[in-house]
Design a protein around this nucleic acid. Structure first.
Length: 589
RNA sequence: GGCGGCGUAGCUCAGUGGUAGAGCAGGCGGCUCAUAAUCGCCGGGUCACAGGUUCGAAUCCUGUCGCCGCCA
């Protein structure tokens, strides 16, 4: 292989206030996993990290609604998110969370470094203060009448009726969301600001060079923002009690704003991983080596945080690698409607994995991944892709070849005779697929990559129909042996090509082909104890995977295992039933 | 109001300068090893509309219409 690269794969940190739906998976996590699995098979030095975002108002609001602490909300959903990664096979080397001593320490170090280097300044803000509760009310903790449209229940940061972004002090008839009272006044409060204006020029320099591999949409948006020269300071502290404390003497009662601290997780998680594996400096491999590449898999709503704010923070901190690529995806709609938790229009992953296997989901979501524009998921398409593409084209190919070998060649890989042109052409196509598919994944074109793998499976089916080994076996056993040998060889290679996309079924096929070993890698959870706190993490080890991203060679004579179908066919009626089920949920019945 | 995207066969979409493509759905045929799976053939589109650049435009430019985002 070529040069061994250090590749850091990261994904957006999900808010830990609920279960994840298929939009999250298609938007960020599945693409990241396919990319990471492929790069590991290539032999590159991959580290994939992420974690649960435990701070921020989505968590505290949820906690207050239920009358529990934010930490209790985190303790409920964090393990569920981890279980989802395990069930769907999303292979984080470390999936952690933000309420850890490690993350506090690293975030406060960022804050102090920015502060000392002059990238943070202090300023006075005017905010609502509740005299009853004796505290400032951060954006969502105050409600009132929208000054633009008159909507009486506008939130402090935004009006849900007209969609405008609001400054809370503009609200008319403000109410406190904690006590419900109206005993409010505007007070001045001091806050810290990240001086993005100062980072505008360095960011422009960075964005101008060596970005040909970026998606045009991401690059154009980022350039337009930076070239407008309008970056302004953004507050990074708040008057709340849940979050990381501001590490400046006299300001310990304030908390670091979640947007500033959450992105630091990309870095802090690699530090935590280094400590867990007992090599405290290992993180430098991905952050200090200029040839290392960092990929951020996110949804489009997160673009400015990853192409402007976080790179700016890294520049301000100094001497850490900036993003190599930010392959942001668009949105996945379901049955023509936007996914929405509040409107109960969701397909939750843990829920559907109770009824369906993980690989059909991985397959369908990879096949329609919203890389170029918004896409529409329908249950009908899910069933069709499962039945026509997974079951019929790929699963059936593997099954028919394995069965034939199992019955006619004593359950062994037959010894081939001389190859004819058809044999050679198919074998060559299977070799070349590693290049073409690999190039697509390298460019983070997951859909195109999967299309190419499927194309090879179709070619193999055609090959069998032309060669007709079921006829050959009657008169010319050696010819049939050659055909089945070639077909088995290609099935074995398709197994590898499909592994990043369909790890569970490739593992089964690996065993049917008579191999030993685990080609998916192992995932496990671990409780990490720090000085005061404990937290749950998910880990991964793929170091003993016995296959590589290269044409495999199945040895003649290898004993096969009795094959079973790789995928289950779905009755077309399930599409209707599932849509019906969603409509019931949405209407609250 | 500003910025951006999209509008290609019945459906879902691919295709960024050189004689319109895939899958599905529909029709016909072959095969029977395989989860009635597979393979071949056929029909079907003024590439939203109108101008322009070009020897040549779905592809570049301008405008119009429609849909959708983001921002103000």
């Amino acid at each position: 292989m070529t040069k061994r690269l250090n590749i850091l794969v990261t994904t957006a940190w999900p808010y830990c206030n609920g279960d994840l739906h298929i939009g999250h998976i298609a938007g960020a996590y599945l693409g990241a996993d396919i990319f990471a699995r492929y790069q590991r098979l290539r032999g590159h030095n991959v580290l994939m990290v992420s974690g649960s975002d435990t701070h921020g108002t989505p968590i505290t609001v949820r906690a207050e609604e239920e009358g529990v602490t934010p930490r209790e909300i985190v303790d409920r959903y964090h393990p569920r998110i981890i279980r989802l990664w395990q069930e769907l096979g999303i292979t984080f080397d470390l999936y952690t969370e933000t309420d850890t001593e490690n993350h506090w320490r690293v975030s406060q170090d960022f804050f102090l470094t920015h502060w000392k280097k002059g990238y943070i300044y202090k300023d006075v803000m005017r905010q609502w203060y509740c005299l009853t509760d004796e505290q400032f009310l951060a954006d969502r903790y105050v409600e009132g009448t929208c000054p633009y449209c008159g909507f009486p229940e506008a939130r402090g940061d935004q009006c849900d009726n007209c969609g405008r972004i609001l400054d809370a002090i503009e609200l008319k008839n403000p109410r406190c969301r904690i006590c419900g009272g109206t005993n409010l006044e505007i007070r001045e409060t001091e806050h810290f600001f990240l001086d993005l204006a100062k980072l505008n020029e360095p960011l422009l320099e960075w964005i101008r060079e060596d970005k040909e591999h970026w998606r045009p949409k991401v690059l154009n948006y980022t350039r337009a923002q930076l070239e407008s020269g309008e970056l302004r300071g953004r507050p990074i502290s708040r008057d709340i009690t849940w979050g990381i404390t501001v590490p400046v003497p006299g300001y310990e009662h304030k908390r670091i704003y979640v947007w500033y601290e959450a992105v630091i997780g990309y870095f802090s998680a690699t530090v935590e991983w280094s400590n867990i594996v007992g090599e405290p400096d290992a993180w430098k491999t991905w952050w200090k080596d200029p040839a290392a590449r960092t990929y951020y898999f996110i949804g489009k709503d997160n673009i400015p945080f990853h192409t402007i704010i976080w790179p700016g923070m890294l520049i301000g901190y100094g001497d850490l690698n900036l993003p190599y690529d930010v392959p942001a995806n668009e949105y996945l709609n379901v049955e023509g409607r936007q996914l929405s938790k509040s409107r109960r229009w969701v397909i939750e992953v843990l829920d559907v994995l109770e009824r369906y296997d993980p690989d059909p989901w991985r397959y369908t979501l990879a096949a329609i991944m919203p890389e170029a524009g918004d896409v529409n998921f329908t249950w009908e398409e899910f069933v069709r892709r499962n039945n026509d593409e997974l079951v019929a084209t790929w699963g059936n190919l593997a099954n028919r070849v394995l069965n034939f070998a199992y019955r006619n060649f004593d359950g062994r890989v037959p010894q081939p005779g001389p190859f004819d042109d058809l044999d050679t052409a198919l074998l060559r196509a299977s070799e070349e697929a590693f290049d073409t598919v690999g190039r697509h994944i390298d460019a983070v074109q997951i859909r195109a990559a999967l299309r190419e793998v499927r194309r090879l499976a179709e070619e193999a089916n055609k090959y069998l129909n032309v060669k007709e080994p079921w006829k050959q076996i009657k008169g010319n056993r050696e010819a049939a042996a050659t055909t089945i040998y070639v077909a088995l060889q290609v099935v074995d290679r398709l197994k590898v090509l499909f592994t990043p996309f369909l790890p569970f079924s490739s593992q089964k096929l690996h065993e049917y082909l008579g191999y030993e070993g685990n080609i998916m890698g192992r995932q496990w959870t671990e409780e990490i104890e720090e000085e005061q706190k404990k937290h749950l993490v998910l880990r991964y080890d793929g170091s003993d995977i016995p296959v590589r991203w290269e044409p495999s060679t199945l040895p003649p004579g290898q004993q096969l295992r009795k094959p079973k179908p790789l995928f289950r066919k779905l009755d077309p009626s399930v599409a209707e039933e599932e849509v019906e089920r969603m409509l019931r949920m949405a209407s609250g019945r």
